[in-house]
């Protein structure tokens, strides 16, 4: 299964007929690393939601692999996606149970997966609600990487980490083969050579 090629041409996404983000023209090819830039409220999160089919396309074109999107293409895209939202929802219950639901049946987390972002096996026996925000962000990243998605959509995933962990995360994400679209106010992403910045137009 190859990475998707996504093309937006003058695309406006919205809800119940009201435009929320756009018009956007952006091509995302396999291997691309993009940092979405723009002031708060300009629609960065909405663009990710629009790409995943949670908002309606009101104008323009939205193509995946040269074909105009259909519901089945969106479901397929979601299967290839690792999406970590700003609000970071990991539900409640134990970490182990959550991982069982999140990861593919044959995949388990190993010590090496966890230690990549300075986590240990001890976290598996903790309750999700007892984790700090930083631990939750790192755990969400570890679980996402274990799924090996082709497209990462990451919304403020390093906001609760200290500088050395942020560096670790940014350099690891930059070194992957996946397509990455990041929203972050952290300059470390901007400073990474792997990422190019896409300034989002403010909707008029």
């Amino acid at each position: 299964m190859s990475a998707p090629r996504i093309q937006l041409r003058d695309t406006v996404f919205g809800h119940q007929g009201t435009p929320i983000v756009g018009p956007i023209s952006l091509t995302i090819a396999p291997g691309d690393k993009i940092l979405l830039d723009g002031p708060s409220g300009c629609g960065k999160t909405s663009l990710l939601r629009g790409m995943l089919g949670f908002l309606n396309r009101l104008q323009g074109s939205y193509q995946i692999d040269e074909e105009e999107v259909s519901p089945s293409a969106i479901w397929h895209l979601r299967q290839q996606t690792g999406y970590i939202s700003q609000e970071l929802h990991l539900c409640t219950g134990s970490v182990r149970e959550w991982l069982k639901e999140t990861l593919p049946p044959a995949r388990e987390l190993h010590e090496t997966d966890l230690s990549r972002f300075h986590l240990t096996n001890a976290i598996l026996d903790q309750a999700l609600e007892d984790l700090s925000r930083g631990e939750r962000q790192r755990l969400a990243l570890v679980a996402m990487l274990a799924r090996e998605p082709k497209l990462f959509l990451l919304d403020e995933v390093t906001s609760a980490l200290n500088e050395s962990l942020r560096n670790l995360v940014v350099s690891h994400i930059a070194s992957t083969q996946a397509i990455v679209v990041v929203i972050s106010h952290d300059d470390l992403w901007k400073e990474s050579e792997a990422f190019h910045t896409y300034p989002l137009p403010v909707i008029s």
Binding site: R49, L52, F54, W75, R78, Y83, S85, E87, H89, L153
Partner: peptide, 22 residues
């Protein structure tokens, strides 16, 4: 009320039935 959590499940490839399970 938990739209964002629900979308998070769908956005990570969960089929509708699985996203609705909780």
């Amino acid at each position: 009320q938990n739209r964002s959590a629900y979308e998070s499940r769908l956005g990570n490839g969960a089929p509708l039935k699985e996203a609705l399970r909780p």
